[in-house]
Design a protein around this nucleic acid. Structure first.
Lengths: 375, 375
DNA sequence: CTGTTAGCGCTTTCAG
DNA sequence: CTGAAAGCGCTAACAG
């Protein structure tokens, strides 16, 4: 049978409580006793029973990261940063099990994972990527998040806007002293039913999109196609709004057929470009939902014998690693993904003071390369 | 206060045992009672306490996937497939929490995650990607895996060779943890039950590499540079062996300076190409460690004014989604990533019969595109 | 500093 | 088919 705390205690000739103390190093223990215990642990190859600890302590060392698509570099980079930050417990014994959960962009799976994580009494959860704008889902999500918070789980939204205040729940109270005695936080969470308020790290998608389209307009483009992301996704809407704001600000007419929606993948960009050209083959520029989509657009353009950027300028979004290498190198909007992920991770672990109003807006930066050129 | 099983039981006017039964649907319960319980669950918004269940049932619904780098599409695609397969419990109530853990290629983190997963009493674990060939690490890894197996966890290796038989039995051979003197006894590990034997899903890296280099040789190339992956990684070694086997089979001399090792990323390919050219600027072809590296090689080549494939042919490996889109489209070796991941996931969940000897070797396929051309 | 004593919330025989 | 009772392995007061 597996070896338990009691076995270790017996072997070391101490009580279970003492073993627990040296393992969690959250209480003074004599040096000699400590050594003895540690030796027993090693000899017996003892591996603590996580569920049992979690049950007794009402908290687990599991922390989750939800992403829309693990196979998408955007999330890969983000998740990697969040995880690196969450994993190193920031202290002895702080070994956290940071795990990433793939929702595949499905709202249901998102909720399911949240429930599963709640079930596991995860210590923190970071939700990345755009949120689906559907009132039913938003409400369900807010409810789940409120319950997670009530259970003492710190929730951080990264790359999506904060929860609507109405849905966020009535308790946007004090910032929890995550470093203090665990018992305090736990007691508070139980008594009040409120927990740590959700925090947010958002990107300035609107501003970035606007700057990008203004760059195109400045180059003389007027017939600009737009391959937007999935409909009803906050990210999509924000980027679209920025794009339109730029158009409006410069008096460029935004013909209705100039926007096509699609997934955040290459195939979508490819199909959208063909569709856009079918509607109007005099397009001189295309702004894509993101870099991956932009690559699909370029492929379609090439296929029709159009050169980038000589005949048509193409712009991406995100500035993923491969964008600089594409041929031609992509003009895009750089999002500080690594920085955002690390910040979200730190916030989740209570290792970073919560920003005012709980929201940090990260600015984006226009990166001009070779895929865009004057008309 | 969070609502517990007892609360639900009270509300439904039944015992806790009954509630447990309907929730796990592992025991006959009267239809009416069942409905009553379910209603109470809904009304109270009850969320089971995972740790408590895990403790009582001695098994959890957590399943893990270890990857070297979440930001690398290779692992993204693989993880996505494994996860999809593991998540859908394959039956009612079979909601598994499939999580991916990012080791960053660090052997220590790999071991840490394995311990953490063991601690959580994970039901299954899939280790993806090449393994580091270091006897100490291999032994430690084998020991961890043996213990996981002993605890009833199904371990599946995906994209790496099976554990050496010798190491698979090497219990307690690892060095003791950070502090604490060397442990003498290993009596405990003795009587442990065997548990499910580790299963393996491997790629034919050797065969793929050989086919690729033969393609190049067939095109007339003789001065072929090789940008291999990180040293001491099984994947690297196998691909290199395939490459050399092809060279040898066709009587092509393999000059010693023609191979450079580096990470599986674009920067490495870029640097390696420059280095290779510095050593011998008459190279006519380069085989890269993988597609990402190949892109870096192409970039370096272009920078030196060399055209691909007119001046130098370049080949990748893996056939990741972006490879078909690169300019020029990459000649590469296609690995059935999705298939492998799904298979590994099914094996892990016991939803697929174990292959003979516990090992499945998946064949690769040469994909010839535009980055390679006759001399 | 260390041992004792209660549970944490759920599953699971064992009876009815 | 349903209930009662006995823990699963660990942590956390509360004494010593």
């Amino acid at each position: 049978m597996t070896v338990t705390l009691a076995d270790v205690a017996a072997r070391a000739g101490v009580s279970a409580a003492t073993v627990s103390r040296v393992l969690n190093s959250n209480y003074p223990v004599a040096e000699a006793t400590r050594d003895r215990v540690l030796r027993a642990v090693a000899e017996l190859e003892y591996v603590a029973n996580g569920p049992a600890s979690a049950l007794a302590a009402a908290t687990s060392d599991l922390v989750g990261i939800l992403v829309n698509d693990v196979a998408d570099p955007f999330f890969g980079v983000l998740a990697s940063a969040v995880q690196a930050e969450m994993s190193d417990g920031g202290g002895p014994g702080g070994e956290k099990l940071a795990v990433v959960c793939n929702t595949g962009g499905s709202p249901e799976r998102e909720l399911t994972y949240l429930t599963l994580l709640h079930r596991q009494r995860a210590g923190a959860v970071v939700l990345t990527g755009g949120a689906v704008e559907d009132s039913a889902h938003t409400a369900a999500l807010a409810a789940r998040i409120a319950r997670l918070a009530a259970a003492g789980t710190q929730v951080v939204l990264c790359g999506r806007p904060p929860l609507p205040a109405a849905a966020a729940g009535a308790h946007a109270a004090e910032a929890p002293a995550a470093n203090g005695p665990r018992a305090a936080g736990r007691a508070a969470a139980r008594a009040v039913g409120a927990g740590p308020a959700p925090l947010t790290v958002a990107f300035d998608n609107r501003g970035g999109a606007r700057a990008l389209t203004e760059h195109l307009v400045g180059l003389g483009h007027r017939r600009i196609g737009c391959v937007a992301g999935p409909e009803r996704l906050t990210t999509t809407r924000h980027r679209l709004e920025g794009h339109r704001a730029a158009l409006a600000a410069h008096g460029v007419e935004d013909a209705p057929g100039r926007t096509v929606h699609g997934a955040y993948d290459r195939a979508s960009g490819y199909a959208a470009a063909h569709e856009l050209l079918r509607r109007d083959d005099r397009l001189t520029a295309v702004v894509a939902a993101n870099d991956t989509v932009a690559l699909g657009v370029c492929a379609a353009l090439r296929e029709r014998g159009l050169r980038v950027p000589e005949d048509v300028s193409v712009a991406g979004f995100d500035d993923l690693p491969f964008s600089a290498d594409a041929v031609p190198a992509l003009t895009t909007v750089r999002l500080p993904l690594g920085h955002a992920g690390a910040l979200a991770g730190r916030l989740a672990m209570g290792r970073e003071p919560a920003p005012p109003a709980g929201v940090t807006l990260l600015s984006s930066e226009l990166v001009i390369r070779n895929s865009t050129a004057p008309l």
